[in-house]
Amino acid sequence: MKIEYPTEEEINTSIAVSIEKAYPNREGLLVYLGRLYRQIGMAFLLHGMWELFLLVIAAYGFGICCYDKLSQTLTGNSHLLIILVSPLVFQSILLLSVLREQEQYTYEVEMTCKYTVYHVLALRMLIVSGFSILLNAIFCTILFWENGMAVLVRMVFLSATAVFAYSLFYVSLLTKSIRLIYQVLLYGAWLLGNVLFRLLLPMVYEYMVWRLPVVIHVFVWFLFAGIMGHKLSQFMYRNCQYNDVRV
């Protein structure tokens, strides 16, 4: 009986699978995403999203230009605005990118590639999170510069925590479904939850936002960032294997 010797490709695949089984996911999330970024490149990663980025920057520019009126309107509620707006930037950019892909019905081909829609979404989420945190930091700096460094730092971390907290819900949602309607409902729930919290438990809300030591805000931010990284990693690896496309 003649047994054919495996091809070079079959040997390499077998080695790769064995190594991965023995040392599963040893590559850190950031290293993996960095490799993914170099592979896909900014142009493809954010394809069709440049207009959205510009739109968001324009909206912020408008907000800054109307600073005087804004600060009068916001008296006592500026923190609520920050908590609501920062995830809104994150959500709107991602929502429209998902909408665009759904309209074109490109998932079927993209999901059978080495890097699937989920990998791309994970990297996009990270980039969009960074973008909205940066934009909010600039916004907060302009809005709260006069209130001193402590308030500014508090506000920056508050907005960044809001982004990560929201993105945690977002990732959990995406693990179940990437249907557009759920994403809209998620932001609706975030908005409603925060406004109700502010109205029904004003003392607790006030305390959490203004009175808690800044160091706790910083700690919470790091905690959320860590959980977010873990969730993102789970999201990618879980979905990159044999999953139904649920759009």
């Binding site: 079959e10 695949t13 699978v17 069709g48 081909v109 059978t112 080495k114 990159c240």
Partner: peptide, 29 residues
């Protein structure tokens, strides 16, 4: 595939795959 489930193979399996769906989606621009 080659003695391993395609779940196990994950991206290594997808690397070997070419797929053309019935309704082919594309980016218009």
């Amino acid at each position: 595939y080659d003695g391993k489930t395609i779940q196990e193979l994950g991206e290594h399996y997808r690397e070997l795959l070419g797929y053309m769906p019935q309704h082919f989606g594309y980016y218009r621009d």
